[in-house]
Design a protein around this nucleic acid. Structure first.
Lengths: 200, 200
DNA sequence: ACAAGAATAGACCGACCGGTCTAGAGAATG
DNA sequence: CATTCTCTAGACCGGTCGGTCTATTCTTGT
């Protein structure tokens, strides 16, 4: 069920992407630009060139399930970045991650709605989505916290700084979008990186 | 209907609030809980106990005009807080403002969608709203920056720290909402205040 | 008292929302 | 070939969206 990367329609490198993936990435792009409520299923379908039947086949839970899946996908990506290159200092890795985010912000004409902001407002309407977002933040913070401890920070300091870093990234990305400029995000990133240095 | 025991707008102290104000504050409360798109005009009308005719009489621009007005109202409130008590140190004032925000966060069961997050996603659909939000951030930052200069910070440092403070407040409030706890916001506030001390 | 504007009131509209349902295309089994 | 399952396809549904419209009630100036 997961992959059909053998047989007729697919050698492992096929250009026409899986319908499910197409829906997911279209939803991702639209959500971060217009917010969760600002995107209709028909918008997603049109962007993904898929009919409604396919959508409800792959995501029986409908729009909400898509939202949760997108949040999970983003989280997975971020964690992968922080999980890699354990040898390097946290501040170094953070700067690298930040550069990548900066590039995305610029590439998308500052249309990146912050990591999870697009879904935050739905907390009241959809517990599942709210939970997914809360979880995402928690996992991100935990990952950074673990690295900082490894860098030699005391437990409490690591926890506080990790949390502050996440806030800075979120706030920075948000204001960057509002102001249509990467500058605020870069500033936040710089500050966050310095927070990850022990001799602060 | 509801109230007719006073001369309309003439008497400045009437308990039954002006319809326009009722609509505005209802919209404010709903927007921050559900986001701009998450709230329908009928929701606002019901919460304000007003009919549609009144809404379009006071806000001919419809929902968008209401959104802009709400953003302006929030900004006005924040600026008033920072404008007052010029004598005190900025960090002190910041802590006071923060306490007030913390109280609001707790009182509303952490339903405070960050200051302007609720409107950010509409940037793409409504230039006016986007502009209003960008303006709001700029004004806030400028107000803090001015205070920091007055506290003796160099121009560049004042600008950067002011921007960082705003990011921290936004990010902190956002994560506080996601995690359903004031703790993250308090942490952000603490860090922001220390940024406003010269011997950092 | 009376005219005129401000404000209230809600029925009504077309568009779109998320979601359901039935039908068919395509490959994998016997 | 017949069957079966996955997946595609889109017409269709009731409900709600933001917005317009006309009618009526207050308030105020004269």
């Amino acid at each position: 069920m997961a992959n059909s990367d053998e047989k007729t329609k697919a050698s492992s490198e096929n250009q026409p992407i899986d319908t499910r993936s197409r829906i997911l990435s279209a939803a991702f792009r639209l959500f971060r630009k217009h917010g969760y409520h600002g995107v209709g299923l028909n918008d997603i379908l049109a962007a993904a060139s898929a009919p409604k039947g396919s959508l409800y086949h792959h995501f029986p839970g409908g729009k909400e399930e898509i939202g949760v899946a997108v949040v999970a996908e983003i989280t997975r990506g971020i964690l992968a970045l922080f999980g890699a290159s354990r040898a390097k200092k946290t501040s170094t890795v953070l700067m690298q991650v930040g550069e990548q985010m900066s590039a995305t912000i610029e590439r998308t004409n500052h249309e990146i709605c912050t990591l999870f902001t697009a879904f935050l407002a739905e907390r009241s309407a959809s517990p599942k989505l709210g939970e997914a977002v809360a979880n995402a933040y928690a996992e991100m913070t935990l990952a950074i916290e673990a690295r900082l401890k490894q860098d030699g920070f005391a437990a409490r300091a690591a926890k506080e700084r990790a949390a502050t870093v996440v806030m800075l990234l979120e706030g920075g990305a948000m204001i960057a979008q509002a102001q249509q400029s990467v500058a605020p995000f870069s500033l936040a990133l710089k500050h966050a990186a310095s927070l990850c240095e022990r001799d602060d």
